[in-house]
Amino acid sequence: MSDSLPTTPDAVRQRAAAADNRRRRSARSASRQWRRRGLMAAYIVFVLLPIYWLLNMSFQSNTEILGGLTLWPEDFTTEHYAKILTEPSWYMGYVNSITYVLMNMLISISVALPAAYAFSRYQFIGDKHLFFWLLTNLMAPPAVFLLPYFQLYYTVGLFDTHVAVALAHCLFNIPLAVWILEGFMSGVPKEIDETAFIDGYSFPRFFVKIFIPMISSGIGVTLFFLFMFSWVELLLASTLTSTNAQPIASVMTQTKGASGIDWGALAAAGTLTILPGIVVVYFVRNHIAKGFALGRT
């Protein structure tokens, strides 16, 4: 390869050119850095603008809202929030929503953990078909199940209870949880289980003391998804409830009165539905970056 090596003056010139290039490039990469930040900022603005507008509305009186467009609340008022937080018909919506979401998370995770373990560790009759069938439930449009659910829960006397909604959301949340957890569990070497059994751990003790801590970030991410899909769903939740367990999402439809829509209350109620989500993301923010790929990279 000696023939292909550059002669010394050439090499010097080349290197000088490269250094030059580098200087130019570092200038260019600084501008690239700024472009990058600019684009990111633009996207963040795009995300925040509609939310800001909602917030803006929620602090305006209805006369100000309808009086003309103002970019920020000129006549700042918290009357809508006060109304929502003092009237039981309003705030019970939040209580109901949070109740069934938590119930659903608890039910889903506790049945999904052993099931996901079985799928990740064992072969058994029908395992592949079963897994595939589970996943098809993720694809079932809630609208398809609307009517049967209504009739089923009505018949068994669960209509208008939190349990009804929690169970209904199991339709998509359990398969989702099994699927996500299976990914994380398969990432844990099987030797861990074997060592634990040799050390004399019983299965339940091994599962709770050793295995669950090992996939804690997977469980965190799973709970995040369970919360997310149960919290945002409206169709089933509002169909299976009337007054006692009505979710906030369907309480919000009552803002449509005879005199038109109560924009201020709608905006304030909407703003309040965003808050639990922010709290949840804040807690799992460090896991999201890693865990969102669901153990499947």
Binding site: W53, L54, M228, V232, L266, G270, Y282, I288
Partner: peptide, 27 residues
Amino acid sequence: LILVTMPLLIPWNVVGSIWQIFTRGDI
């Protein structure tokens, strides 16, 4: 990360409401 995730955690009908309010010609 938190800001980007936010839209995912808003109830779907509230998403509709947000955009309804955001896109109305008058308000």
